[in-house]
Design a protein around this nucleic acid. Structure first.
Lengths: 267, 267
DNA sequence: CACGATGTTGCACGTTTGTGTACATTTATT
DNA sequence: AATAAATGTACACAAACGTGCAACATCGTG
């Protein structure tokens, strides 16, 4: 039973062996050190060394007797939600001051945008379009908002729907103001995102809105990521923290962006 | 019943065994030490040690003879909004037992359905399609699920997206199992809803699924509302409370519906 | 070719971890 | 209160583990 096929795994080079171990792990969900040693015809010590290296790269989780697939707790979004509550709240208050009664807002997923949704004025007849379940739920709980949900495949690490279906829905909508979550923004190169699909969605948001507001914590300013969302010319407003560098603020203003500075926070 | 499949659980690595015990616990709501010892082919002592460790992490609650789900679920705050948390949890556990690994589920808005989402087994490769931001968020937080969000206008009183846009999206999807929230169900007249738009959406859900599971608290049984969602013939499974009337259960069974009765609740 | 550097492998050693058995204790049931 | 089942503790044993070391192959350089 064990050796129907004459074990293609023999005589594998070390790195090749690790690749095959990984493939085996991914297809079966677990690997046993003793079995691998037999299959590759090496000692269990070598297998253990392999597993050690794979584990160091986060590709497997070592357990007594072998290895399992790593726990899928890549980014606990729950924790991120409470990272800098006071700073984000100050940013959010300033951002909300740009909103006028009766407007339609397009709000992206993200912790900063959730903070904005949390302080939107009730009873101003606002319509909010969002791809983030968390933000939609938050607004439902507060009551007094018209909420339009963007559907599609929801990516846990982002906390909102992105992808072709989401983009298609946004294209059929129209908003006064949009708040694309910022991954990085730079005066020379514009707005950037980390993920390709995510970037396409943000782009669609901006296209569907009259004006764009970028709300950025200090660490986003001057940073550049992998995929460009839009030129800086597409951004009308930039909301920064009180602690944002004066020269940086001037650089954005020189490009025609209205820069709004949040109040200082006590904490 | 115990050993249809030749127990895939044999020869599990220690840590792997704990994971499987946890998965089993989450899907069935309880585990019995003796059964686990047999399934994994180890002594009960080892099982007890496993349960001890899981309990130390707060992942289960040890009881005489085995273990139960921890008294306060991982989402205490969110689930507290339900009216009868224990009763709905018992219903949910029974409902979840109908779900098989790898399936695609279509889950309607509603507190009972939220309870179901809260006890879906992690790591079973489930795909969940839902129109309720609350349920989507809950599954994102628990991690390990593929979540597809149905967009559209979100009605606060329902807690989910309904309307033409939502219906259109559902029509382009296909699921193994659907859980339409029940407003009323009657053996003679079928499934009913209160709101016209909501009813259309539920109907679309049922059309998009192979099988339909109706989970009904006692007050929904035998009741009739304003708009018909579907004939009883479209409903394959009905999950009722432990306290459900025997005659009522028989009436549904007579119409070819498989009736599942939840465990009794202590509180 | 000689030489050293580098990397892989298997083995021996002591250590850690998981498992089963024995016995005393607690718990549920009658 | 009596009884059987389940549990906790202590101990012994085996399996798996990490580490240090020596043997061997490979490769580049002088």
């Amino acid at each position: 039973m064990a050796k129907l096929a004459p074990t293609v795994d023999r005589n594998a080079l070390p790195e090749e062996r690790q690749q095959r171990i990984l493939a085996r792990l991914r297809s079966e969900g677990r690997v046993v050190a003793a079995e691998l040693a037999e299959a590759f015809e090496v000692s269990e010590d070598s297998i253990r060394r392999d597993l050690r290296e794979l584990a160091a790269q986060g590709l497997c989780k070592r357990v007594y007797g072998g290895a399992l697939l790593p726990a899928v707790t890549v980014t606990p979004l729950k924790q991120r939600r409470t990272e800098h509550p006071l700073r984000k709240q100050a940013l959010a208050r300033k951002a909300v001051s740009l909103v006028k009664p009766g407007q339609t807002l397009l709000i992206d997923a993200g912790t900063t945008n959730a903070a904005i949704a949390a302080v939107l004025p009730i009873g101003a007849g606002l319509t909010v379009i969002t791809n983030a379940p968390h933000i939609a739920q938050l607004l439902l709980d507060r009551e007094g908002f018209e909420v339009l949900l963007i559907g599609g495949r929801v990516v846990a690490s982002i906390g909102g729907a992105i992808g072709a279906q989401a983009v298609e829905q946004v294209k059929r909508m129209r908003a006064d103001l949009c708040f694309p979550g910022a991954c990085a923004i730079d005066a020379a190169h514009g707005l950037w995102g980390f993920d390709s699909e995510e970037t396409l969605f943000k782009r669609a948001m901006i296209d569907a809105s009259d004006e764009t507001v970028v709300v950025a914590t200090d660490d986003k300013l001057g940073a550049v990521a992998a995929h460009q969302v839009a030129e800086l010319a597409r951004v009308q407003h930039l909301v920064v923290e009180h602690s944002a560098d004066r020269a940086t603020r001037a650089a954005f203003a020189a490009h025609g962006v209205m820069v709004h500075r949040a109040e200082a926070v006590s904490g």
